[in-house]
Design a protein around this nucleic acid. Structure first.
Lengths: 159, 159
DNA sequence: TCTGTATAGTTCATACCATGAACGATAATG
DNA sequence: CATTATCGTTCATGGTATGAACTATACAGA
């Protein structure tokens, strides 16, 4: 194996171009969606994404979310500040540790979140319903495969 | 058709979740790549992407690139300024129209561009070479299908 | 108990991404 | 020639993100 050093084994020039092209388009679609929903819900994207983590959890700490969102804590301060100002979340002090504050959704926040969820489900439902159930299964399988491929690609980016 | 109003025809809850999950992961992978190559080539992402358009064209105008990149012209001014300062591109006045300036790569810019291309080809080559040629073809077909699905999804976002 | 040491969170400086309005200069058209 | 359109710059604004410095609290060990 790997006896053709430098050349990507078997991958044709055509496949490479096609792949790069498709990935770029797909990526752009995702970005367009983020921008659209950000405008639709009148919420900066980071704040919107933050809200979504409350789908599963009632209380989250700032640190907590910053890990999930993969941003620094200083950034997190600002995101939470934005949500507080819009009164979509509220915060209380953790009675067991005065360093941390527990963040949770206000009723308005819950409402917003459910609207977002409906939008996303509907949109992705529309996208998936373009094809038959048969093809859908194949599509998901292939996306899963692609995920694995890309995961491996990350090792290539280990500087 | 469409006799189950509201409900996305046939799309199961499981498929919906799986799809959203996969898309998010894939999107994140793409973002990670952009960030990595931006760091690797010591170039802001926008400037790097700008450079790539010179793969096919020798001369481009500011307006020209701004359309390709889908950004406003004021933004373009700044991106080009960054590349000029780094001496990766140079500009000359269009002799036929004094309003426009023609932008082209310097030798350093050509060099940078070719390095970027090599990196991207290698990375995507690695990703694709994870699977057999057979699967690769299926994968590309499915990505193309997904592209079409998403294109249709855009109509859903016609506010 | 006192003393590091670790952690949560804020503030500030910096840099990048992107838009939109206002503006000067230069075509192009009538 | 005057009007209109286009190219590009500048400026104000706001969103995304990092990293360093700092405060306050918690905790573990001498």
């Amino acid at each position: 194996m790997n006896d053709n050093a430098g050349q990507n084994k078997n991958v044709t020039e055509y496949q490479l171009n096609e792949f790069q092209n498709l990935i770029n388009i797909l990526f752009q679609c995702c970005q367009d969606r983020l921008q659209y929903q950000s405008k639709k819900f009148n919420l900066p994207d980071a704040e919107l994404r933050c809200l979504i983590f409350f789908k599963d959890e009632k209380y989250l700490t700032s640190k907590n979310i910053s890990v999930k969102m993969n941003v620094g804590k200083s950034r997190m301060t600002k995101i939470v500040a934005g949500l507080l100002k819009k009164e979509l979340v509220k915060r209380i002090q953790d009675p067991e540790d005065h360093r941390v504050s527990l963040i949770s959704l206000t009723p308005a926040g819950k409402d917003k979140l459910s609207q977002i969820k409906v939008f996303q489900d509907e949109l992705h439902g529309v996208v998936l319903s373009q094809v038959s159930d048969e093809e859908r299964k194949k599509l998901l399988t292939n996306l899963d495969l692609l995920k694995a491929c890309m995961e491996t690609g990350k090792e290539f980016m280990a500087d």
